[in-house]
Design a protein around this nucleic acid. Sequence first.
DNA 1: GTGACGAATAAGTCTGACTTTTTGGCTCCG
DNA 2: CGGAGCCAAAAAGTCAGACTTATTCGTCAC
Lengths: 233, 233
Amino acid sequence: MSTSGRGLHGRVLDTLGPEITAGGYPPGSVLRTDELAQRFDVSRSVMREAVRVLESMHLVASRRRVGVTVLPPAEWNVYDPQVIRWRLAGADRPRQLRSLTVLRSAVEPVAAGLAARNATAEQCAALTECALGMVATSRGHRLEDYLVHDTAFHRVILTASGNEMFARLGDVVAEVLAGRTHHEVMFEDPDPAAVTLHVQVAEAVREGDAARAEELTREITVGALQELDILAP
Amino acid sequence: MSTSGRGLHGRVLDTLGPEITAGGYPPGSVLRTDELAQRFDVSRSVMREAVRVLESMHLVASRRRVGVTVLPPAEWNVYDPQVIRWRLAGADRPRQLRSLTVLRSAVEPVAAGLAARNATAEQCAALTECALGMVATSRGHRLEDYLVHDTAFHRVILTASGNEMFARLGDVVAEVLAGRTHHEVMFEDPDPAAVTLHVQVAEAVREGDAARAEELTREITVGALQELDILAP
DNA sequence: GTGACGAATAAGTCTGACTTTTTGGCTCCG
DNA sequence: CGGAGCCAAAAAGTCAGACTTATTCGTCAC
């Protein structure tokens, strides 16, 4: 399911990327292209391409006579979807999930407010459909079906905001929601209050009530923060 | 001043990247690696490395027997600092600046609230110093000096929030502030009310008053939105 | 019209030789 | 004893050419 599945260099990245983002090499560690090529049994050309990609993500820096230096996490392009996936698959998944949830709590309310102003009729219809789908699947342990509608709902909100930076966070939110359903404590049916909030957000967007859409979405994200025990008194 | 200055493939990217992000090639356009290598007078190895980097930014997709296809803007990794720089240097700079300012308006207030809870003594001191610097340079057409302190102020806020996703937006905010000073209508001294707000935010953070820090920062970002004629009634 | 086969095409891969830059040590001189 | 400058090693960087593989398109038979 990884994006870099095609090509030899992609397969190298699939193991080297997670190793680095998991902290397998302390910042400042030096790798040598030739050794890596030997280790993965690929030619230097392929290895160089892989290193270039890691370099563009600011995971490593390549310098002559020194080698490929692993950079500290503060330098990483943490908004790169590939880096996000690698980190979510690694050991500090909880930490990553918390960071992203805080980001959600900042972005989504504003996005919902903008959506109330800018959403097209089609987007309003899609939003209502998602909300109804959430209601329909909110009981009877249909968590997977619920997740589909929930993810679609938030994706429509972000897209309908009309802001491309928000729209591109759709995948991130999808990862967070999937992570919550699959790995966190979520064996029971979703909170009925949360479901109601989603329906009300769809209403507010449809009616063009930006302030209400923003406030209701804020309540949703506050709930998400509380689920992860992130204080917000 | 570009990050990819070193290396031949970096020089290729410095011209090919901006060309693509400026919309020089319609989505779906097909480039051939060999032709590009000829055009830039580099070997195919170097050209392939450059294409790999563009591919990791989701600007292009490379497929066998077809070539290097330019992807539509909706696919681009718009959070990649390199992509942001390329787009800010291009024709749709105003559009980009507006998108980023909306993002700021969502993120910075929340970050300020978190900073009020998490900032260290050193960060509080740095914040106060920045605010005082802004006051000192807010009169007498010292726009460049003011920009330095303003940029530092917002960077400290984002870092002090303790959230790595927020912290990594420091460079983006710096670009937006610099763009406002250098290319927008900003010949006069900064708005005294905005300067005061920054001082008050520093106070609120120092006192640990999260709600007040958030609200004051929201006022700052509302001002930034109004400067770009982005409605927020 | 549809399906299968085959040829053309462009990316993908590998190899080996060569270049360039940087660093670390070594010498030589003050 | 210390510092400036030089030299050699090391690793990334670059290049050229040959070969492989997957994909697409055209053609031909059914």
